[in-house]
């Protein structure tokens, strides 16, 4: 009890403050929207109607490659009197849709990395 009180006292006396910040870029790519895009069935018009214009449009061996992305950044800071710790974690959700010459979806590549993005302030380790 006394040790816990001492530890709490040290933390309170050395804790200058803490901060949490967050920034996002792009619209959220919903999982159900991605799941509704079927290879060999969904058309270019369907994709544009559901997701809007892509963030990047590339040519891939004569086929169209639509890329949609969203970035999420979380910043945690622990401001002590002795030392400050802070960590910025950035992850992205990416969706690639390859559309063939007939305007039909040929391939869908997607992943949602931002789902497990956490606020962290400890800069050491992984």
């Amino acid at each position: 009890m006394r040790r816990a009180g001492l530890l709490l006292g040290v933390i309170l006396l050395t804790l200058n403050g803490c901060a949490f910040s967050r920034g996002t870029l792009g619209e959220e790519i919903k999982t159900e929207t991605v799941n509704s895009i079927k290879k060999g069935v969904t058309t270019r018009a369907d994709v544009l109607a559901q997701l809007g214009a892509p963030d990047r449009l590339l040519q891939l061996n004569g086929r169209d490659l639509f890329q949609y992305y969203r970035y999420d950044a979380k910043v945690g800071s622990l401001l002590l009197i002795l030392i400050n710790f802070s960590r910025v974690s950035v992850k992205s959700d990416d969706l690639f849709i390859i559309i063939n010459h007939e305007g039909i979806v040929e391939e869908v590549i997607a992943s949602k990395r931002t789902g497990n993005l956490e606020f962290r302030f400890w800069p050491f380790g992984d």
């Binding site: 030392i83 802070s86 990395r113």
Partner: peptide, 15 residues
């Protein structure tokens, strides 16, 4: 601890 203040350790990870 007060005179030793002024240390910063920060990290940025993307993906």
């Amino acid at each position: 601890a007060m005179p030793l203040s002024g240390c910063n350790v920060a990290r940025l990870t993307i993906n």
